[in-house]
Structure formats: C-alpha cells, structure tokens
Design a protein around this nucleic acid. Structure first.
Length: 124
DNA sequence: TAGGTGACGGACC
DNA sequence: CGGTCCGCCACCT
C-alpha cells in the first residue's frame, strides 16, 4: 500500500532497515540500493536522522561501508547509543566505532523483499 | 538563486 | 592502515 502521507522515501528506508535480522549489519549504500535508490547513501543517512527515538526500527544495524559507526557531534549521542545496542546484539564494536562488518554483513534475499513495502520500487 | 553541508562511497596516495 | 579528494544528492541558510 502506498503511504497516505509524505515522501515514501523515508518509509521505504525504514521498511528496508526493518528487514535486517537481529545481530546482523547493513550499510547505508546497501539500504539505498535495496529500495532502488542506488547512489543515495547520504539520503538514507538523513532518513535515519529524521527517525524519532526511541524507535521500533533497528536503525542501529546500519553502519557505513568502511565498517564503522559514523561518529559525529551532530548526532548528539545517538552514535554511542548505537554502539551500546550493537554490543547488546553480540557485535564487538571498537571504542572508535570500528566493527567486523565482513563477518556480520547481511545479504538480503529476494524472498524477504517480496510482499514488503519495497515492492513499490520500479521494476528493472 | 547560489552556495555550503553531511549518520556516504569509492578511488588514490 | 590512515588521510584526501571528488562525485553524489537532498537540506538549510
């Protein structure tokens, strides 16, 4: 169903992030590509920034492609909260935000996309 | 309207 | 490894 209000972008980002399994990780670019917005990793970051906390969306499972939590003052602490949440899920995170992305990276399966809000993406 | 900014990514050095 | 640069695109002066 198409969202009644607003830009579907944020909604699609949240829908994609919601698919990330517990204890697994995805990158901003990965989420972007997943919703048919290849190259729009930054926009994914902004969408998560607009996410009111606390949230049911597992936003903490999204990290950058360099395998580290994006730590910046503009997040006003949500970056450290992200580290805490990941540690709780069993993912070892460096004090500098570095983590073993290769080992915990989530590979999205087409079967998981079917029927989700992502289906509204243009067919290739 | 123009220009600076950023929860990014990839190429280079 | 780490540091820079550049392309990217929506936001915010």
């Amino acid at each position: 169903m198409v969202p009644a209000v607003g830009d579907g972008f944020d909604q699609r980002v949240y829908a994609a992030v919601a698919l990330i399994p517990h204890g697994r990780l995805a990158t901003y670019g990965q989420i972007a590509e997943l919703i048919g917005a290849y190259g729009c990793a930054r926009q994914v970051g902004w969408a998560l920034r607009r996410l009111p906390l606390p949230s049911a969306v597992p936003w903490h499972r999204v990290v950058n492609a360099q395998g580290r939590i994006s730590i910046t003052p503009s997040r006003e602490g949500s970056d450290w909260i992200q580290r805490e949440l990941l540690l709780e899920e069993g993912i070892p995170v460096d004090v500098e935000g570095r983590l073993p992305l290769r080992a915990y990276r989530w590979e999205a399966a087409l079967s998981e996309l079917d029927g989700s809000a992502l289906a509204s993406s243009p067919r290739v």
